[in-house]
Amino acid sequence: MRTKYLSVKQPIGDFYITSLEASVLAKIADATARGEHPDAVQREQSKNRIKEISEYCSDTDATFPTPVIISIDMNSNVRLDEDFIYFDENDIIGDVIDGQHRLEGLKKSSYINDFQLPVVFMFNLEPYQKAYVFSIINSKQTKVNMSLIYDLFALSKTRSPYKTCHEIARALNKESKSPFNRRLKMLGKKENDQELASLSQGTFIKYFLELITKNPDKDSRDIKREITLEDNSNLPLRKYFISEEDPVIHKIIFNLFAAVESVFHREWNDPDNYILSKPIGFGAIIKIFPEIFKVGHDNGDLSQEFFEDVFQKIQSNLVKEVTSANYGSNEQARSKLAADLLQAYNA
């Protein structure tokens, strides 16, 4: 087989950029883990990551724009002329330095034949050079703030759980009577006029999604493919999402937290001393919401007044103050606070 290439000159040496059918690349590239061979550089494969990528391949907008990097075996029969790289597509010709999970995910999907992949061939790398390239690629990446990622869903033309949650977060942050007015750090950091902002959009959406979907990525893909979403869960707001009643979801969340602000006014408006409006408090309220929702839904009442009655009962029976000293600031603290809130509600 032959493929055209572009040559790139850099201090480590020349390398060659081309594109190959994913099905071909999967046959010619090996991804041996470090624990399996002393000269190997790859980490152990993550089954969850491979599964995620395999499912992602079904997205109608799926893309893998970054190249898979292959170190060509010095003893392989790969050769170059001025225009083409030649190799036997039935032989393993090199090791994957970067991109093993993409390849494995594609192999496990039903869509591998839909993809060509950009590929970089690097020749004559010593084991220490392979290790250096791998370590630089995987240690110098800057993690993108989740608030920014969620904010970018505003640009999507397609409905998704992420977009719904973002739009509701944005509305609640803007509305003057909202309990979250100017309280959400939409891009992950406070603006100058946000003295009481104690919750990032990223955290808000992370917990909010728990009420709508167990697999937001799958829902997003299914919506693009016009596959009817299933409501086979006990998630309280899912039926409204499926029926595209986002204003109803917005109103319920508004009523819920307006009641929290009304009943726990001091705690909600003093994030320096209390955690109710911080991630742990917000997350705990989301955690107990399904039980509260069931009562209100069965009685046909999800008004702010209904939720105020709920939180007044909680306030009367809650033993501990909602502070970090009493609960901490991790996911375990969220569960602990949620358990105490439910106990106070059911007392």
Rank of each mutant, 00 (worst) to 15 (best):
D39K: 13
I70L: 12
S277K: 09
N317A: 06
F208K: 05
I285N: 00
I292P: 03
L302M: 09
G283T: 05
D246Y: 11
R43I: 01
A29R: 05
N255I: 08
L229G: 08
F121N: 03
L172T: 06
E21R: 14
V41M: 09
N299S: 11
N346R: 15
N48V: 13
I249V: 12
L209K: 07
K108D: 14
F153G: 02
N234I: 14
M146S: 15
V41C: 08
R79S: 15
D231K: 10
S198A: 14
H37L: 05
I137Y: 05
Q10D: 05
T142C: 00
R49P: 00
A339Q: 13
T32A: 10
L80V: 01
Q312R: 15
S303L: 02
R225T: 01
I275H: 07
D30C: 10
Y56K: 01
D272T: 13
P38L: 11
I112P: 08
N75G: 10
E104S: 14
Q42L: 11
L318F: 05
L148E: 06
T203M: 11
F311I: 07
Q315M: 13
A171Y: 12
R221A: 13
E55H: 09
S316Y: 10
A169Q: 00
N113E: 15
L318E: 01
K4P: 00
L187K: 14
D298A: 10
I168C: 02
T66M: 14
K157Y: 12
K206C: 00
E321F: 05
N299P: 02
L337V: 05
I112R: 06
A169T: 05
E267D: 04
S147E: 08
I286N: 00
S23T: 11
A26H: 07
E195F: 07
A31N: 07
E226Y: 03
Q141D: 01
S156C: 01
M122Y: 11
D88H: 03
T158E: 15
E308C: 15
I314V: 15
F87T: 10
S335H: 05
F180L: 12
E36W: 01
A339F: 11
I285H: 02
I249M: 06
L341R: 03
L172Y: 07
L20W: 01
K130D: 03
E210L: 10
K287S: 11
L25Y: 03
S54I: 06
F123Q: 03
V8M: 14
L229K: 10
V319D: 13
E126F: 11
K278I: 04
I12A: 06
D98Q: 06
